[in-house]
Amino acid sequence: MSTESIPPRYAVVHNDEEQYSTWPTDLPVPNGWYADGFTGSRQECLEHVGRVWTDLRPKTLRDLAGR
């Protein structure tokens, strides 16, 4: 009788400091965050983040160091 829920889907999102996270696709993305196009299960999204987010320093700090 009980309907199994469809596993929730997540999007990979980042902010202006290029900090990454995941966000449920059925909720509006919070202010100042942008979807980068990758969606999947939470685990898939986290693995994707692991590949693309190679420097945890906020962008401001990276830009200062690179100057």
């Binding site: 990979v12 996270s21 995941t22 919070p30 999204c45 986290l46 983040v49 692991g50 987010w53 945890l56």
Partner: peptide, 11 residues
């Protein structure tokens, strides 16, 4: 980065 993204979410 993966663990960080998991525990630190958009607010």
């Amino acid at each position: 980065a993966d663990l960080t993204a998991e525990r630190f979410l958009p607010d």
